[in-house]
Design a protein around this nucleic acid. Structure first.
Length: 386
RNA sequence: GUGGGUGUAGCUCAGGUGGUUAGAGCACCAGGUUGUGGCCCUGGGGGUCGCCGGUUCGAGUCCGGUCAUCCACCCCA
């Protein structure tokens, strides 16, 4: 028997559509436009955006050379493709803000576990051309609205990574601190000192965490403008009644983030607890060859929240069945009219009344319409409400 | 990539120390009730026991390998 590949799943759960519908409605209500970018992209796009030092690019990409000799890969995340499209369509030159939402499959070659698959789906949004911190608040508010509409409880964590002004200075301070404690850090962190020192902050090693407790914090080293933006962000969330925690070690795994970073987590879904993540990426458009354009966005992991949404089990729609073959065309004709307004299922097989009722019950239909010899003659239906 | 758990019916799982035709519950189908679902009763259909090899007179059971799956590390949505 041929089975789906490791870490890949068929989607049969109606909750999936419910999540998609809800997220789309909210994004549309925020004034965002739909964008769909190709699943396959040039590998260098992700190397330059997500970052070559990240695990995602380093060891988790489905990468190959296509028949034309191009180095390509299945997208491991959504932002890079949208940014590529933004630049390719010269929206950076137009200079007007653009806001997109997207939805689709992402691929990472990882060991599967609870809440982590090799093919998974993200709903995401990207806002280009607005550097106002109030846009960050809009974005976080949108994610919060989606979770609220879905009835999902979460903890929101926020942090600021600073800007090109303050981040490098902070990085130097941190590297200095790390070098002082180098021999006590784990292997990974020792390597990170030169490659990506910021990533030591969210190292899971207990020993490292103990040492890093005394490390300089980025939030204590922000420049005036970043500092005041972070304050505005906190006040803005308070204003909207959105609760949050400040997580000074929230640095996130993608290299393109600046200033605001945030993560929505749930404690009900196992080790893979991040249900959404995002932040500001004011340098990314420029990195990818566009005119400097600020951006901010987030992505929700659909599979991660599947277990957190309720399914509605209310009866709905009409089940139509025939007791004799001659009645099938009769109900089919009637069904076409009624279907303009609601769900109508026509059972294509002749069955006993009992079997029809049982099938309608199992199918969770609300109303049963049956036609047999008598009904055909009189031109009506046997009707029963379940 | 590393570690641990688990693979028997569509689903959830039983099958001491190897022994004849591999079981249960749920689900499915039919009948009891010739045109009134859910409850009940009776009957029925369904299985390469993950796969390959080994030990043995004999393997679902023991051994080795392999694959899959789950959970964790790691990473992240």
């Amino acid at each position: 028997m041929i089975k789906a590949l490791r870490g890949m799943k068929d989607i049969l759960d109606p909750k999936f559509l419910k999540i998609f519908d809800t997220a789309r409605d909210v994004a549309q209500n925020y004034g965002y436009d739909y964008i769909e970018t190709p699943v396959l992209e040039e590998t260098s796009l992700f190397k330059r955006s997500v970052g070559e030092s990240s695990d995602i690019v380093n060891k988790e990409m489905y990468q190959f050379i296509d028949k034309g000799g191009n180095d390509v890969c299945l997208r491991p995340e959504g932002t890079a493709g949208v940014v590529r499209s933004f630049i390719e369509h010269k929206f950076d030159r137009a200079g007007t803000p653009k806001r997109f939402w997207y939805f689709g499959p992402m691929f990472r070659y990882e060991r599967p576990q609870k809440g982590r698959f090799r093919e998974f789906h993200q709903f995401g949004v990207e806002s280009f051309g607005t550097k106002s911190i109030y846009e960050d608040i809009n974005i976080i508010s949108m994610a919060a609205d989606i979770f609220e509409r879905l009835g999902i409880e979460y903890t929101l964590k926020i942090n600021s990574l600073g800007c090109p002004e303050c981040m490098p200075k902070y990085k130097d301070k941190l590297v200095e601190f790390l070098n002082q404690h180098k021999e006590n850090l784990c292997e990974d962190c020792q390597r990170r000192i030169t490659q990506n020192p910021i990533r030591t902050l969210d190292c899971k090693n207990e020993n490292c965490q103990a040492i890093l407790k005394d490390a300089p914090k980025i939030t204590d080293n922000l420049c005036d403008s970043c500092e005041s933006d972070f304050e505005t962000l906190k006040k803005g969330l308070d204003n909207l009644g959105i609760k949050y925690e400040i997580d000074k070690n929230l640095v996130r795994g993608l290299d393109y983030y600046t200033k605001t970073t945030f993560e929505f987590v749930s404690n009900k879904i196992g080790a893979q607890s991040a249900i959404a993540g995002g932040g500001r990426y004011d340098r990314l458009v420029e990195f990818l060859g566009g005119k400097p354009t600020p951006g901010v966005g987030f992505a929700i992991g659909i599979e991660r929240i599947m277990d957190l949404v309720e399914t509605d089990t209310k009866r709905s729609g009409i089940y139509m069945g025939a007791l004799i073959e001659e009645a099938i065309p009769y109900i089919q004709k009637h069904a076409r009219g009624v279907r303009k307004e609601q769900k109508v299922f026509v059972e294509p097989n002749v069955k006993s009344l009992k079997a029809h009722l049982k099938a309608a019950d199992k199918g969770n239909y609300k109303t049963v319409l049956i036609a047999g010899e008598d009904e055909l003659k009189k031109g009506d239906f046997f009707i029963k409400e379940l």
